[in-house]
Amino acid sequence: MNASRVAPVVGIVGCLAVLVALVVPYLTTEAGAAGTYYATGAISPLVGGLFAVVAVVVFAAGRAGRTDPATAAGVTLVFGIVVALVSLVWALTVPEAVVFQLSTDSALEYHRWVLALCSLVIPASGVWYARTLGLV
């Protein structure tokens, strides 16, 4: 098992987990409620989702050799930190009252923390990727 090829795959899986977590409220709440849910925090986690989409491309390009692996590791580490910070800031600032008003589904109660946890995988895999290349 070549760690320099596994680390980007873990990063891609982390990015996809963030994107899936961002879609869940749209599937489990009434129309328009997810927009309200995401707009109530200090910053929308959809901004982090945008960075996660770009990180998927960079992880894949670094793994396939279309981008210098060292550059890909650095870029994904920075993007991962941005995704994690945005998700954590949003999770800490969204009012609990909004969460409980939007859905009676108890899964939404833990959604913001699951999103924050998933977002931590991206910078962790970026660090792992950089370490496998001898950069850190």
Rank of each mutant, 00 (worst) to 15 (best):
N2T: 05
N2G: 02
S4E: 15
R5E: 14
R5M: 13
V6Y: 00
P8F: 14
P8E: 09
V9N: 02
V9A: 11
V9Y: 06
G11A: 05
I12A: 06
V13S: 01
G14N: 12
G14E: 09
C15A: 15
A21I: 05
A21S: 12
L22P: 05
V23S: 01
P25T: 04
Y26R: 00
T28A: 13
T29P: 02
Y38G: 03
L46Y: 03
V47A: 12
G48V: 10
L50T: 09
L50C: 06
F51R: 04
A55K: 01
V57E: 02
V58E: 05
V58Y: 01
A61K: 06
R66I: 11
T71G: 11
A73K: 07
V75A: 15
V75N: 04
T76W: 07
L77M: 13
V78F: 14
V78C: 12
F79Q: 12
I81M: 14
L88C: 07
L88R: 14
A91L: 10
L92V: 12
E96H: 08
E96S: 13
E96M: 08
V98W: 01
L102S: 02
L102R: 06
T104D: 09
A107Y: 02
E109Y: 09
H111A: 14
V114N: 00
S119R: 07
S119E: 08
S119D: 03
L120D: 07
V121S: 11
I122K: 08
I122N: 08
I122Y: 03
I122D: 05
G126D: 02
G126Q: 00
V127P: 01
W128R: 03
W128I: 01
A130S: 08
R131Y: 05
R131K: 10
G134L: 10
L135T: 13
